[in-house]
Design a protein around this nucleic acid. Structure first.
Length: 823
RNA sequence: GCGAAAGUGGCGGAAUUGGUAGACGCGCAGGAUUCAGGAUCCUGUGCCCGAGAGGGUGUGGGGGUUCGAGUCCCCCCUUUCGCACCA
């Protein structure tokens, strides 16, 4: 008896829970396999993007479990963050209350979708039992100098009233509120991600199961560039102006220097008029951001001495020189750098050519009207004339080293990660400031530093600042009154290591047992949106390397295979409340059931592409599940009737082969290619053959019946990764007492994978002229003879001469002919 | 501007190693069943010509390699994404 979907889905969800089917034991003996989807922020309700994400991971996890693996498939909540505070302000509720209520709602929604999570391992990052280990790791980082405090210019979002990391600023705007970010001078805690820059870059090559797109984005973000620093003595002052350049070979082409107007350390050397001009430029640059592409600049009145030619070189302040890259100053070579060229043109500065194309195709580069930045031969460069520019570059660096005027150097675009946030709803940073002892780490034995709950959220800065009991503490070192840090950690901290906590979520002594980390890490399949390509995925990689160095894990990289799933689109736009095109998962589950909803999400597009939500498509999928139920029921009845002895007919023999071909195709599509859409298509195709065999031909003999009896236990298992409730229901209808979720994935019988007759295309001059049917292993001569015998093919060969015969066994015959003669 | 990915019926998408383009699904058309609607079942469905057999044409555009190209090479167009004065 197959129950209606609403009834059976609830029943099976309960049964899975009761039997703890997806709880994985740490001492199981199978191959440890870790399947993980990016954990959700408890924003209120599950949306279709979540459903898609988790349906992909769930299908994969269930499939691997059926393959005999020990599958770890946990879920939790990325529970700290701004929206909880915003909601608190709007509704006068405590962020914790809001968050836990959302978690309850969303947990219920996930359960209704029937995902195969090990709920015993559920975590929420806002619980002290979780963040205490984050605080502990931070203290260890502090000890090792990986965490440090400094005053610096930071990105400040006036809406969120907090500092942002560089990664959280997109086009000069806050990643969350879209407000234009301001620059502010502030104290804050930083993590030395730059110490790991080289390893983060190098190890990208090991991540061969990551999309190239993501690896490229990270490579660009890290931004290694090789070059040299060059020191220029300032004229009439006992100071130097140091620059970074990737083109030391162009040193003889320097006709001016350019500094960022933010280089306030140089203001004292300028006369009043120049200083006023530079300040005006600085203010203009700050106001415009970098939206302004037009080159602008002013002379500073300063000059430097060229380290090799000893010539005087003027220094300008220029709007295109970045304050926070390199040294905030450049040597300008207008002949060979387009930006320098444009600026020189703008201000009438001379252009000095020092490299010409090696083939002499252009003997006077100065006539180009733009900078020449390709390789070439050195000119106007003293001893280096005639050399290839790359070689000259090396020698010039050597000459600078000799004179103490420079050295080879590597620059990075990656900045240290600022993790201080002036927000309440986050993990407290475990340090105390004492007037006598300075910055004092909270002793590990005092952890966790609990976030106090008796606060009122006003939106006027962090609620912690005014919380006297939290702030006023005794110095752990000298015992005198001291102040506790009131900033909290960036929420990206919590998501940088949660995948390790899942391994040992109830351990009160340690973040995770190293043996468990050894067993389960790295994550085998990590699935989530591409919007995390830099932020979360870079931080998580960094954290993993730190955890390795601290002895918590033994792997270098957290995620072996990364699948970046596409967005869910409706009416041409990403589903969002503001666009009013959201589809509520609960509604879909109520109307069509979890199985149908999940099947449609997986079928409508390959996992990595965007998915267009079409209600009609869901209805089509409901037709499929309905048809499958009816056909299964009908087949059960046939299997139970008495039929005359006899071999199977041709239709049923074909069906038998189709079953095994479907197993083979689905196994490859899910296991190797991760193309869940074509795996489902293959199952649909099988159902078409199967229901036709029953309805059109009908089972007439015991042989036919046997084919159906063999097919029955295979179908629920093929269905189980995608429509697990229906699969359990069908499995149970066969009399099985165990769960299909625990059954073995079927194995195709290799003898049944080849048909005894295949269709072979016959072409004449590459055009299809006929089709013949032969055994797949027919020899070439037989194929040619049969092809020639085809009426239509014969017509094309009649008045022509065959000059070449191409035969692809089991596939195709192609006659290459030319007119005239007789074949 | 630089980098990456993509462009296939009315629509979502298949085609895995250069070998029968359009699997599977939606939609649409015709039929069966039905009082009717819905549901279900069957048949057809790239475009053009043809009663049919069959022929022509067809994977963004143009060229090329090959017996054979959606797939490989060159040029161009469009879309999406990422980076964007990184010296």
């Amino acid at each position: 008896m197959i129950r209606p979907f609403a009834e059976r889905e609830t029943a099976w969800q309960q049964a899975w829970d009761d039997a703890r089917v997806f709880a994985v034991s740490d001492d199981a003996t199978g191959q440890a396999t870790y399947v993980l989807e990016m954990f959700p922020y408890p924003s209120g309700r599950i949306h279709m993007g979540h459903v898609r994400n988790y349906s992909i991971g769930d299908a994969l996890g269930r499939y691997l479990k059926m393959q005999g693996r020990d599958v770890l498939h946990p879920i939790g909540w990325d529970a700290f963050g701004m929206p909880a505070e915003n909601a608190a302000i709007a509704n006068d509720r405590h962020p914790a209350e809001w968050t836990y209520e959302n978690i309850r709602t969303m947990r219920g929604q996930l359960k209704k979708l029937g995902f195969s999570y090990d709920w015993d391992r559920e975590i929420a990052t806002c619980r002290p039992e979780y963040y205490r280990f984050e605080q502990q790791v931070f203290l260890e980082m502090l000890e090792r100098g990986i965490a440090y405090r400094r005053k610096t210019r930071v990105n400040w979002c006036p809406t969120c009233m907090t500092v942002l990391a560089n990664e959280q600023v997109i086009d000069d705007r806050c990643w969350r509120s879209d407000t234009v970010v301001e620059q502010k001078e502030m104290d804050g805690w930083f993590l030395k991600i730059t110490d790991y820059a080289q390893e983060l870059l190098d190890d990208l090559d090991k991540l061969d199961e990551w999309p190239d797109k993501v690896r490229t984005m990270q490579r660009n973000w890290i931004g290694r560039s090789d070059g040299a620093t060059v020191h220029f003595r300032l004229l009439d002052a006992d100071r130097t102006l140091t620059v970074f350049t990737t083109r030391p070979d162009t040193l003889f082409g320097v006709t001016y220097m350019a500094i960022s107007p933010e280089r306030e350390d140089l203001y004292d050397l300028m006369d009043e008029q120049a200083r006023a001009a530079v300040i005006a430029l600085r203010d203009k640059v700050r106001a415009d951001g970098f939206a302004e592409n037009e080159k602008a600049g002013v002379p500073t009145g300063l000059s430097v001495i060229h380290p090799l030619t000893r010539q005087d070189i003027p220094v300008y302040a220029a709007n295109f020189v970045l304050a926070d890259y390199g040294t905030g100053a450049i040597m300008a070579v207008p002949a060979h750098d387009q930006r320098d060229y444009e600026f020189a043109r703008q201000l009438g500065i001379p252009v000095q050519v020092v490299i010409v194309p090696p083939d002499g195709s252009i003997d006077d580069v100065s006539q180009l009207g733009q900078a020449y930045s390709d390789p070439g031969t050195m000119v106007n460069s003293g001893d280096y004339d005639g050399l290839a520019n790359v070689e000259a570059g090396k020698r010039i660096v050597a000459a600078l080293v000799d004179r103490g005027a420079g050295s080879a150097e590597v620059q990075w675009r990656l900045r240290d990660w600022g993790v201080s946030r002036q927000r309440y709803w986050g993990a407290p940073i475990p340090v105390i400031y004492c007037d006598d002892c300075g910055t004092v780490p909270v002793p590990v034995t005092d952890l966790p530093v609990r976030l106090p709950e008796d606060v009122r959220i006003t939106g006027e800065g962090s609620a912690l600042v005014g919380h006297d009991a939290f702030v006023n503490v005794d110095c752990p070192s000298c015992g005198k009154p001291a102040r506790r840090e009131t900033d909290t950690f960036d929420t990206f901290m919590e998501s940088s290591w949660y995948f390790v906590r899942y391994l040992d979520p109830r351990n009160e002594q340690r973040l995770a047992d190293p043996g468990l980390a050894e067993r389960w890490m790295p994550v085998d399949h990590y699935i989530g949106g591409v919007e995390h390509a830099v932020l979360h995925l870079l931080y998580a990689r960094f954290f993993t390397k730190v955890l390795r160095d601290l002895g918590y894990v033994s792997c270098d990289e957290p995620f072996r295979h990364l699948l970046t799933q596409g967005m869910v689109i409706k009416d041409g736009a990403k589903m969002s409340k503001s666009k009013g095109n959201v589809v509520d998962p609960d509604e879909m589950v109520a109307r069509y059931g979890a199985d149908t909803t999940r099947l449609f999400m997986l079928f409508a597009a390959p996992p990595e592409k965007d998915l267009d939500w079409q209600e009609q498509g869901v209805e089509g999928m409901a037709r499929f599940t309905g048809r499958l139920e009816r056909t299964f029921q009908a087949t059960l009845e046939i299997a139970a009737t008495d039929l005359p002895q006899g071999d199977s007919g041709a239709v049923f023999a074909d069906l038998d082969r189709a079953v095994h071909q479907t197993i083979a195709k689905m196994t490859e599509d899910i296991g190797q290619r991760l193309q869940l859409n074509t795996a489902i298509a293959a199952l649909m195709e099988l159902l078409n053959n199967w229901s036709h065999a029953i309805n059109e031909t009908g089972a007439a003999s015991s042989g036919d019946q046997q084919v159906l009896r063999d097919l029955l236990p295979i179908v629920p298992r093929l269905l189980a990764p995608f429509a697990p409730h229906l699969a359990e229901e069908l499995w149970q209808a066969l009399g099985n007492e165990s769960f299909v979720a625990r059954a073995d994935w079927p194995v195709a019988d290799p003898d049944k994978l080849t048909a005894d007759v295949v269709e072979i295309a016959v072409q004449v001059n590459g055009k299809l002229r006929g089709r013949i049917h032969m055994a797949p292993d027919a020899d070439k001569q037989a194929m040619l003879d049969t092809a020639r015998a085809d009426d239509n093919v014969a017509r094309y060969l009649a008045d022509s001469q065959v000059v070449k015969e191409i035969v692809v066994p089991g596939k195709l015959v192609n006659f290459v002919v030319r007119p005239g003669g007789g074949g």
